[in-house]
Design a protein around this nucleic acid. Structure first.
Lengths: 164, 164
DNA sequence: ACATTACGTCAGCCTTGTTGACATTCCAAG
DNA sequence: CTTGGAATGTCAACAAGGCTGACGTAATGT
């Protein structure tokens, strides 16, 4: 057809894009709301949640690796890790081959907190997925992946590969 | 079909939900990355972006209304607004009917910044939308809307209604 | 007349991000 | 063996941007 613009590309108008931006903003608030409430009770913050989450799904990860995933400075992460270790939620083991590295693991207590946070967050996710349906979910994931920075997409994809 | 479980509900497994959670995390980072870079140069933060964004798409909004949308305390918002007004990006006009209210407007300079931030954010959004396609975008929006808190969804929907 | 609402502001606290500087420990290359 | 560099930890200091609490002022509604 001679008219590729118009209704075909309605989803690319500035107004549509603005709505998408606002949807992201409000949805992210919902996305973090439930874990935030749980964390508040134990005077932890989102940073602790993130650390616990990624240690859980990549047990034995090094501090440096976590740094790359989280995208913060080592000083920032260290402050959070120090507290999690002191509180007995995370264990830091010196590397076997390279003793400079510290490998991070959740303790039983750490796993319990992770599960609690994860359950709350998954519950909302599950509810949203169910309301929207499988096709919508596929689209959701596609758009999110396309929205990531390239290096973060690499981290994201690496998380679903089998570990050595 | 007699089997609603199984492959039909693959998108609701814990693993699928976890991937969705991580996709949200990484995508939100990408989502804010471009505006963040611009803001950094002028020593503004995300809070300023949010204020400018919502004043732009609801010109004349009151402080209270903005408070509800942003979900922060008035002290927090006030700190940001004070600077934006001092810098000449936002104008605060006393209400006509109710003189207690302050109505907020972007100045020309404020509109310029908003456009700059918005352009950067829309560019990424447009690119993601284009890569994913219209059907994916529809699903993306559906899931995001389902993920919001009910009261935030009200705010979200109110933003696309015509104003008096 | 009085309570309430909308807003601004001051003071102080917390989390979580930042930079810079410096020590330690270890691996690897010269 | 020595030395450079990488990985980590730690200390200090700072800023943004959340929060609470308290107080003041002006306008509004009852």
């Amino acid at each position: 057809m001679a008219e590729p613009s118009g209704e075909q590309l309605l989803f690319l108008t500035d107004e549509q894009l603005r709505q998408g931006i606002e949807a992201m903003f409000f949805a992210y608030r919902g996305f973090t709301a439930d874990p935030d409430r749980i964390l508040e009770d134990m005077s932890y913050g989102r940073a602790h949640h993130r650390a616990v989450h990624f240690i859980n799904c990549a047990p034995g990860t090094t501090v440096n690796n976590l740094l790359n995933i989280l995208g913060v400075t080592k000083q920032s992460l260290n402050r959070v890790l120090r507290r999690l270790i002191a509180d007995g939620l995370v264990e830091s083991r010196v590397g076997r081959t390279d003793k400079r590295e510290r490998h991070l693991y959740l303790t039983e207590e750490g796993k319990a907190l992770e599960a609690k946070l994860s359950d709350a967050q998954r519950a909302r996710m599950r509810s949203a997925y169910r309301k929207a349906g499988p096709e919508a979910v596929a689209g959701f994931r596609q758009v999110l992946e396309a929205m990531m920075d390239a290096d973060m997409r690499r981290n994201y994809l690496a998380l679903r590969e089998p570990r050595p």
